[in-house]
Design a binder for these strands. Structure first.
Lengths: 110, 110
DNA sequence: CTGATCTACAACCATTTGGTTGTACGATAC
DNA sequence: GTATCGTACAACCAAATGGTTGTAGATCAG
């Protein structure tokens, strides 16, 4: 059963989302605590709109989720995106291990 | 002892490097086998110069290393960059686990 | 109802990115 | 020695990115 099929384009967006220090900081913070979008915006030396865009980028790749509460939008960490990213790096790591085994085999033969 | 201090700018470049399907494909291939730059270029529907730039991006963040052999440059996988990326995601994962524990504690109290 | 707050989004701008072609140069083959 | 191959790099271009300001719709406070 294919649980979730990650397209290359989705992976592009996922790693792109992680490739910004402000966005990585947002991910950390909203995993630990709860912040509204404007609560987050207050933390950074940029406009509200800029932060709002960063949140939208993170939301699109499921690194973050928003939940409406009154007139605020509460931003929380979403494990899904992180798991997807880890899955790719784990796969690369597995390729490395296979390579190491292969080399060990060759040495054992010789 | 600080083994390696990763600046935010370095992390930006590292994840940026991973945010391109062609570059991810190059990383996989050169981890398994050996390719010259032009050997890689033959695999993709783009110019030699484009592929060469991709390799340069990967080399800059230590996802790949080049070694001169005659007139060719052999491109190989470099574990270093991958480890750095994994380290960040591992850290995020740790934050998630702490969060889970904290929630469990609160439930235990109540 | 009115005013303030929180969010969303459009329009705009500068810089970066991912591609191109063209040029140059060292290493190899003949 | 000369032609070819593999690489590097500059210059250029279109599109995407990360920021801005401004406008507008909901929701809450008084």
């Amino acid at each position: 059963m294919v649980v979730d099929q990650l397209t290359e384009a989705e992976l592009d967006r996922l790693f792109q989302a992680l490739a910004d220090a402000t966005r990585r900081d947002i991910v950390r913070r909203v995993t630990v605590g709860e912040y509204s979008v404007s609560g987050l915006a207050a933390l950074y030396a940029m406009s509200f709109a800029a932060v709002q865009k960063h949140v939208a980028v993170l939301e699109r790749v499921s690194l973050v989720a928003k939940e409406k509460r009154g007139r605020e939008q509460i931003v929380r960490g979403n494990h899904e995106g992180l798991q997807k990213a880890r899955r790719l790096l784990d796969e690369y790591e597995a390729i490395w291990r296979q390579r190491a085994e292969r080399i060990a085999d060759i040495l054992a033969e010789g």
